[in-house]
């Protein structure tokens, strides 16, 4: 499996990271080095092996479905780059 510039561009887009056009070939090269390393996994016989879901064999705990927290709008917005009238503010989404 070899990653070309187009795949690198698409992956950057999926990851929502702006990568300048001139940087894409080098990025594809780095991906290929890492994926080449990962490729070793193809040697392993994994027939009939379950993919690991949880490393410790325990059931996740459940709790009652009740409100335990809330009314902290101010604390939640305190770190926002832009907040207005109790909301996070972002560039216009709907034309």
């Amino acid at each position: 499996m070899s990653i070309d510039t187009e795949t690198a561009r698409r992956t950057a887009k999926l990851a929502r990271i702006a990568v300048p056009e001139e940087r894409l070939p080098a990025l594809a090269g780095e991906f290929n080095a890492i994926l080449g390393f990962i490729e070793q996994l193809q040697e392993v016989d994994v027939d009939g092996v379950e993919p690991m879901v949880s490393v410790t064999p325990m059931r996740l705990k459940r709790r009652d479905d009740v409100v335990t927290d809330g009314n902290q709008a101010e604390a939640i917005l305190a770190n926002a780059p832009e907040a207005r009238e109790g909301f996070f503010a972002v560039p216009k989404v709907v034309e």
Binding site: I3, T7, T11, L14, A15, F31, L35, I38, L41, Q42, V44, V46, V49, E50, P51, M52, V53, V55
Partner: peptide, 22 residues
């Protein structure tokens, strides 16, 4: 993002999780 993307999920991510079991 790449190893989780459509078409590669099984070949990479699921295989890695199986190797992790081993």
């Amino acid at each position: 993002t790449y190893v989780l993307s459509a078409g590669f999920y099984d070949a990479y991510y699921n295989r890695a999780r199986k190797v992790r079991t081993l």
